[in-house]
Design a protein around this nucleic acid. Structure first.
Lengths: 250, 250
DNA sequence: CGACCCCTTGAGGCTTCTCAAAATCCGTGG
DNA sequence: CCACGGATTTTGAGAAGCCTCAAGGGGTCG
């Protein structure tokens, strides 16, 4: 058996048990405004009229790799993991997304990754075709999306460097720093840092096994660089040491 | 010493010895047409008026990671490698580009990767600011660029899966199949396949050492799946076996 | 023809993975 | 409030794949 993921027995793709929210979600419009600003009031109404708001529970699939890309989503609350899997069950998480991020915006007609919630989550859903029409109507929106896409591309390049050339300790250190930055950007508490993902998910994101992830956390703890208040609550005691480890090994 | 690249002694960033071509390159306009089609004649003239055409020799840097992103480039001929490096010289190639691909189109004001030619190459260069103005003037162009960016993002996700979860044999097999697809898309000869990059560059792309790359090629050769006519000319004798190896290990 | 560079091959070591078991956490129910 | 059960995390021992270091082979260009 090759490295990879504790195989979750490839379920026959249960459709997500989504719950339609009662009305157009105020958060969504607010978020879209944040993302696509500056839009006119008419444009905002245009965007809002196309959205359906959905709520997901933790560990629910929003869509699967290979599915027809019928919808485009914008996350309004919660965390989502994007992943790709191989036939034998090995899994790679390509990114963690949060409020404001787009999901399922593909060039092709099929989704290239799967999307699974890590926490309770809410999304605005657009019919794909309508979303593309919307982009054609609102160049500001398309421009904004291009900026988002190139930013994601840069993040992907960072991840490629991490996976191709960094050691386990460097990956974990980089990951923790990344999560701290995310929390800052979101205005969340950065210390102690809350990790919404399991060790298995961290491993699947960093190209490591769950055991290696755990061992690295332990090593950081024994070096007094972090403390584990909880499996998913990390106190960052020595950020400088963490930054040093992120680029120069152990 | 950690895995990585046969250190090329971090040169003090020699400026590229570029050569200005005499006039607006016909290829460039044609290429832009290919890429941004359908543009009106006026729009084409608009694009062409902004370009400077440059020629590069093999192994020349077009720009470095961290440099101010003064220009955006479009490749009209030749191959280019994008890479990121770590302080100790470990290098990761994030992608190989060819005719029609854009270079240096960033959200940020600094380049996030370095760009180096693999072969003789020609590029159309745009002043960054002028290029962004151009996008604002020609929504068709911006739309096309968004499609390009999302396509590149999907390629990056494939690369992330490869680096995070595939074995050396799987990486090499996947790589060869990828190169065959590229050649097909370009209308180039697919068999024997011409590899414009060295073993070191293949290694830096696949997150492997030069020795491991070489050993995998040898193994494929001894399995009668490929033949090496030359270090950089590969005959693909059993594409099906290669495809099988790409996803299921050795 | 020789020098240089790149590629190939070999031997040994190290990081990470695999397999296994113990410890801890957390929700549930008494 | 405490006990129980399942899941997750941690820890340990051994194996394996890939890397490191080293040397030899082959092609190209002056």
């Amino acid at each position: 058996m090759i490295s990879g993921h504790n195989v979750v027995a490839m379920q026959p793709r249960p459709r997500p048990a989504t719950a339609e929210l009662p009305d157009v979600c105020a958060n969504c419009t607010a978020r879209s405004l944040t993302i696509c600003a500056p839009l006119t009031a008419d444009e905002q109404a245009d965007v809002a009229s196309l959205t359906t708001n959905l709520a997901f529970k933790p560990r629910q699939m929003i869509f699967h790799e290979g599915d027809d890309a019928e919808y485009v989503y914008n996350i309004t609350a919660g965390s989502v993991a994007l992943s790709k899997s191989m036939a034998d069950g090995r899994r790679q998480i390509t990114g963690f997304l949060g409020p404001g991020d787009f999901l399922g915006f593909n060039a092709r007609a099929q989704h290239s990754v799967s999307a699974e919630t890590l926490t309770d989550a809410r999304v605005c859903r657009f019919v794909r075709r309508a979303f593309h029409d919307l982009l054609a109507r609102i160049p500001t929106l398309e421009h904004r999306l291009l900026t988002v896409a190139t930013t994601e591309l840069e993040a992907a390049q960072d991840q490629i460097l991490l996976l191709g050339r960094k050691t386990a300790m460097e990956r974990i250190s980089t990951f923790l720093l990344m999560q701290i930055e995310r929390a800052k950007t979101r205005g969340a508490v950065t210390n102690p840092l809350l990790l919404p993902m399991t060790r298995a998910e961290v491993g699947d994101y960093l190209g490591l096994t769950i055991e290696t992830v755990s061992r690295c956390f332990t090593k950081l703890r024994k070096s007094n660089i972090i403390s584990l208040l909880n499996a998913d609550r990390v106190s960052i005691d020595n950020p400088d040491a963490l930054a040093a480890l992120a680029d120069s090994g152990d």
